[in-house]
């Protein structure tokens, strides 16, 4: 069971703003989903190796060499706010 205050705490961790009405709706549906998820407990998984990747292969390594060109201007053209080649966000340091 997830209470409305649980939902509000998780929402803060996820950087989502949830109003009173939404936290009620989400606490109901998330509780149902958690009940579904808990069906997993029917199976004993002790001594089973977790599987993170379908082919169980490790990440490939490549040479530590520059492969990308500088495309800052192009990338910043689609940003909500930039100035002098920097991304602009609200002030965080006084």
């Amino acid at each position: 069971m997830l209470t409305q205050s649980d939902v509000e705490r998780i929402a803060h961790l996820a950087r989502l703003h949830i109003d009173e009405r939404e936290s009620k709706v989400f606490s109901d549906s998330l509780s149902q989903i958690l009940a579904l998820i808990e069906e997993m407990n029917a199976v004993d998984t002790s001594n089973i190796e977790p599987m993170a990747h379908p082919q169980d292969v490790g990440l490939r390594l490549r040479k530590d060499a520059v492969t990308e060109t500088d495309r800052r201007t192009e990338f910043q053209e689609i940003a909500p706010a930039t100035e002098n080649g920097l991304y602009v966000v609200p002030k965080v340091v006084e």
């Binding site: 649980d6 998780i10 996820a14 989502l16 939404e22 989400f26 549906s29 998330l30 989903i33």
Partner: peptide, 14 residues
């Protein structure tokens, strides 16, 4: 984000 996306973000975060 719409409601279903928020719901899945919340489950995942939890």
């Amino acid at each position: 984000f719409g409601a279903e996306v928020k719901r899945r973000i919340l489950i995942g975060t939890y």
